[in-house]
Design a protein around this nucleic acid. Structure first.
Lengths: 123, 123
DNA sequence: AGATATTAAGATATTTTTATCCTATTTAAA
DNA sequence: TTTAAATAGGATAAAAATATCTTAATATCT
């Protein structure tokens, strides 16, 4: 069974994931994509996603080539990266720790995904 | 079965939930608590949580009393408020909509809690 | 009535996140 | 070799989130 996690990601991280997924798709077809194309397809500010990918590229999550017909691409090997690793690279691992509410029953051993339902304050 | 949701809340929202839970606990013992006590117990900036509770109080999530021996408290009725309502009051409902990654398979009908596991870019 | 302790409210300050600008460097095609 | 198109990198700007300050209003105790 899959554990369903719903995240609130930073804009930066959201753009990054969308971009990485888009580049990965294109790379499977052997295509190198430039920032303009990426930003148009994932609906993000062009220069901003440029900066983000520049950073991810430095960290080795994808490759870039400069110059005419340059752009970004993801090798078969890099495509094995889990989305979680990208999230951690950008937003850090705070998301995977603690429950965000800081109740007593949250700990490292029981990192308390915040049980939400119909739980009321008074119970 | 309970659905497990793990959130990244804004600081404001995190403080708010912790404060509300603390006040609710104290109110069950008939105790009115002031900002200083609250901030010490939930580890938040005193003036900041003051502002936050001031807002929640205006919206009717809890009661306040001014003057000496004043403070905040939550009636039995108000204690029925769900944490989700407080989150929405502060962070809005964006958290309950969309998947944050904006993939094609996310929609209003299928609001795609972000399936996370070992999913890889390349699959 | 006076002193003290509390929330209310508006203004302001600080920090972080998001976004843009400008110039340099690189590459390929003409 | 020149030109055009692309990323790299550093600086800056704008917006949003977080935090604090100051004064006013209110309530309680003596």
């Amino acid at each position: 069974m899959w554990l369903q996690l719903m995240f609130m990601l930073s804009k930066t991280c959201e753009y990054a994931l969308r971009a990485m997924i888009y580049v990965a798709q294109q790379s499977r077809n052997g295509k190198v994509v430039n920032i303009k194309e990426i930003s148009e397809n994932i609906d993000s500010p062009e220069l901003f996603i440029g900066k983000i990918l520049q950073g991810l590229s430095k960290q080795g999550f994808l490759k870039s080539s400069k110059g005419r017909y340059g752009g970004f691409f993801i090798s078969e090997k890099d495509a094995k990266t889990s989305l979680a690793d990208i999230i951690i690279a950008i937003d850090g691992d705070k998301m995977f720790k603690g429950c965000g509410v800081g109740l007593a029953y949250c700990s490292d051993i029981n990192p308390a995904p915040f049980i939400m339902n119909i739980k009321q304050l008074g119970v």
